[in-house]
Amino acid sequence: MSDTARAVPAAATTAPAERSAPAQPLTVLPARHPWRWVATAVVAVLAAMAVNALVTNPAWEWPTVGQFLFSATILESMWLTVRLTLVGTAIGLVLGTVLALMRMSHNPLLKAVSFTYISVFRSVPLILQLLFWYNLAILYTVIGFGIPFGPQFWTFPTQDLVGPLTAAFLGLGLHQAAYFAEIVRSGFLAVDPGQREAAAALGIPRVRQFWRIQLPQALRIIVPTTGNEVIGLLKGTSVVYVMALPELFYQVQVVYNRTGRVIPLLLVAAVWYVVLTTVLSVLQWLVERYYGRGSSRADTPLPFLQLLRSARAARARRQGVPR
């Protein structure tokens, strides 16, 4: 470095010094993340403690859990829980979509009816709604089919038509419809208006515009939230125990009242809810991936697959194997 250069302030001299560094090829190293390793260690210890607490404490009575987990009564009640979820979802989705379309229509009466339905069914707690349906026979002793405000051709006692199971299906489905309606509506609002305009400019028929252009794009928004709702509904079916229907939660109560093994039977129910929720989550992931096509440049794997992949990548790096 020359004397004249040394005379200028230090900050200015560093730049020419760096520029004159040897012209070796530079290798790129990944940034270091020491805190990431600390966080990993802390979480790993906490996870180990949690597993330890679950496994070693005899009060959980794991052998009893194993004994009841696959017993016939529990499996039957689990099946009822699945049916309640499926029918509730089906009624909810169909009615919810209709309500959403009504809400988005240009007809003020349809809009008002949909709005009122949604606000009423979202306001009243599910457990109250279920009890109303359960007691429908007290409110209306017979149900007739015929001309509105005119003669009726067929009449049935309400009790025969709406038993506890039907009441549960209706209660869950109609309650869920109010939520689905809002989800479906938000999905359609999220689709770029330019899409409808392009479809209209191309002369694509209205029905086709809906099924081929708008719905698939709306579903990208609708599916994740719907997955959430279905999982919520699955667990919500446990409320149906107030109608003495032998679904999972009701049935474990029956069993522990008989045997006195409260904790392990609650655990049995918990295990089944986790299993069912996991199945639903995987389904949701598959559906999301299908409707997400064309939207992102890379596929997103399930979180656990991601963990597995990064572990594999780390091992490969340590062994010096190029990825």
């Binding site: 899409q195 305009e197 392009a198 698939p216 794009q217 990208r220 064309g294």
Partner: peptide, 8 residues
């Protein structure tokens, strides 16, 4: 803004 259908 082109308005191509992104899912097709």
């Amino acid at each position: 803004h082109f308005n191509l259908f992104p899912h097709l």
